[in-house]
Design a protein around this nucleic acid. Sequence first.
RNA 1: GCCGACGUAGCUCAAUGGUAGAGCAGCCGCCUUGUAAGCGGCAGGUUAUGGGUUCGAUUCCCAUCGUCGGCUCCA
Length: 605
Amino acid sequence: MSYQEQEKYEESELYRIRHSAAHVMAQAVIELFEPGEAKFAIGPPVENGFYYDFDLPRNLTPDDLKAIEKRMRQIIAKHHPFEKVVVSAEKAKEMFEGQPYKIELIEGLEEGGFDEYGEPLDEKPEISFYSHDAFTDLCRGPHVEHTGKINPSAIKLMSIAGAYWRGDENKSQLQRIYGTAWKTSKELEEHLHMLEEAKKRDHRKLGKELDIYTFSDEVGPGLPLWLPNGGILIEELEALAKEIEHNHNYDRVRTPHLTKEDLFHRSGHLPYYAESMYPPMDMDGVKYYVKPMNCPMHHKIFDARPRSYRDLPLRLAEYGTCYRFEKSGELFGLMRVRSMQMNDAHIYCSEDDFEQEFMDVIAMYMEYFEIFNIEKYVMRFSTHVKEGLSKKYVDNERLWLKTEEMVRQAMRNGNVPFVEVPDEAAFYGPKVDVQVWSAIGREFTLATNQVDFSQPVSFDLAFKNSAGEDETPLCIHRAPLSTHERLIGFLIEHYAGKFPVWLAPEQASVIPITDDQNEYALEIERKLKAINVRVKADLGSDRMNAKIRSAQKMQVPYMLVVGKREVEENSIALRLRDGTRKDGTSVDEFLDMIQGKISTRSAEL
RNA sequence: GCCGACGUAGCUCAAUGGUAGAGCAGCCGCCUUGUAAGCGGCAGGUUAUGGGUUCGAUUCCCAUCGUCGGCUCCA
């Protein structure tokens, strides 16, 4: 669901159904325990369903889930009406005695401060309850008229998960039950089918099947090993990035993986980012850290000699390898790893040049998105919050406000739609991220474009302006192609393994029908290799059908079937990955065609 | 890191308180084939690791490691 659609969803019938289903589920869960034993927290509708969080005397099991679902159907069958009452805060607290989470919510509402997610509210809301059958919940609604409006054959409890109260890892951990609810059983089935289909695109599954990457317990969690096919993807992506960056006047640099501790103190990574860094290693009493980001080293390159305004904007690019100590539970296939190569660059510019440089990066996003046919994404403008200053964010409110306004204006002037998200900035400045979704619906930041007003100061970076005075540059950190890891994880799912020809690890497979055509197949292989096509003649003892099948499974874009006829005609029977056949294609014609597809990075076969 | 589930051959999965079996992949042979699996054979596992219970553990228990579903966090 996009952010824009959220407003409409809250007014929909489906939203009321799901919200009501959450209440029914809560009743069923509470009934499993002695009165007062089960504490319940919140239970909102979410995309495709709902959840409810509980604090229970014991852990729920999958068998409980079945029992809860069964009980829900009984409650639904009784057509209990949902009734709303507005009450005073005192009365509300009285009624929820022994329910600490509810009391906390009521106190939040009473102060007019926060909603059920702990988000600040503009005005003091009324306190209302919704009741059905024997269950009453603090709730602002809305609900369906009665439980019978929930279709008992269109609901399903999906999973049990842990979740922190108010999303705060320092608070108690609750048990969350996720459910899905629809209007009809057909919609439910379609949803479940869609989840199955999504699993087939999961990059962890396809990455294995297509021999792209692997993990080894001995190497370590979150440290992917790229197989040859993955190596090809990386090289193609780097070639693309280098080409585009060349066109946008970037200079390429290279920096080491290790740095002395002091550099990261100066950059602010220590302490702001320390939690995500691998612990230091000690060399003769000096501490070294593996780098979680490339920026400090690029700053030193900027500072390698005195700079003039004539040097600016200075754009330093590097596919830098970084290491971040992500918490174990945060790892996720290729999308969230501990070693990564970033499509990194740092742009040093004057304030006057800022808008143009920032928007040039946004334009670069668009160039890439066109090449990859990426259409579903959201630009997120992440800003600081005052309370985070000196804790999560460098302590300079004036520059935060100033740079945030610069970004806001630049995005508006460029007519780029974005959503603004407070309290998600980098420690050194505001940023615009591109959010995408994995096949299984998990949200990820793909590209990023960040302003940094802090590090240039702490690194004493300066250039002589045209008046001959020292001026501090702004720094833009940007990664339009994300990291190889996350981008490739994303692309595997985006293409469902069917990479465009230019990216495909194996671009063509020559398939002789009998051994008599082996020589001819090798000749075609040679011709293709000569124009740098990744091709293999499949001379194995399998029958042609089996060879086609294995090429199909590896999503090879072109299968060149050659039999007696083709040898005589100096042609190929071309089969595209999508099943299209072009028999009698001349060899020269095919050479031209594949070369064209590759050189233009065509999305078409 | 936290809550929960899971961990059998390269892959997908089966079985059992008496030291495991299939399909695919691999290797060898036969077949010489016209657009998604030709046939036969061989080989492959200290059942993640380390303890414990037991006459006996892969199966039961504990710990560790890893993976997965979430939470937190993020490129």
